[in-house]
């Protein structure tokens, strides 16, 4: 029933790319990795779209899915650029928050630093070298981890 055709092959590759990048998207914890996975997943979907449609057209080019994919590429690059902008601003806010916390921590007495350490131990269990800054950062980063509020 199915004979090998270029379009069918690339549609299959597209499907494999979708599955592969879904795996990476869900397992990765790094924002940029997730974004790369999103882009590759998009490419997989586009390959499926064009490949599958052109198998129906006896392997001749079908302008409609190609135009749709062109739209899709532009939408994907918009979304990627937007995500990058937000990531950058978020990183900036993190650094500034961490610096502010550091300044405050320098002024505060040791007792409050201990509290911060404890909070850190609760969360990470390790990684004590950078605990004071990391903890404050994470406490602000993830609302759901902020069990006892801001240490200050």
């Amino acid at each position: 029933m199915i004979s090998f055709s270029v379009d069918f092959w690339y549609a299959g590759i597209g499907a494999a790319l979708i599955a592969l990048s879904l795996l990476a998207f869900l397992l990765s914890k790094r924002l940029l990795k997730k974004l790369l996975a999103f882009n590759i997943m998009g490419s997989g979907v586009f390959l499926m779209m064009v490949g599958m449609a052109q198998t129906q057209n006896d392997g001749a080019a079908d302008a409609v899915p190609q135009a749709l994919v062109l739209t899709g590429i532009v939408v994907a690059v918009s979304a990627t650029a937007l995500a990058l902008v937000v990531i950058r601003r978020f990183a900036l806010a993190s650094v500034v928050a961490a610096l502010a916390a550091e300044n405050k921590a320098a002024e505060n007495d040791a007792a409050e630093n201990d509290a911060a350490e404890k909070n850190g131990a609760e969360r990470t269990g390790s990684d004590t070298a950078v605990s004071d800054t990391t903890v404050t950062d994470t406490a602000l980063t993830d609302p759901n981890l902020n069990k006892n509020g801001d240490p200050q």
């Binding site: 599958m52 409609v64 749709l68």
Partner: peptide, 14 residues
């Protein structure tokens, strides 16, 4: 939206 688009791609292909 990618999951949605994948579904749409399949429907168009079919």
């Amino acid at each position: 939206s990618l999951a949605y688009l994948a579904g749409v791609a399949i429907l168009y292909g079919a």
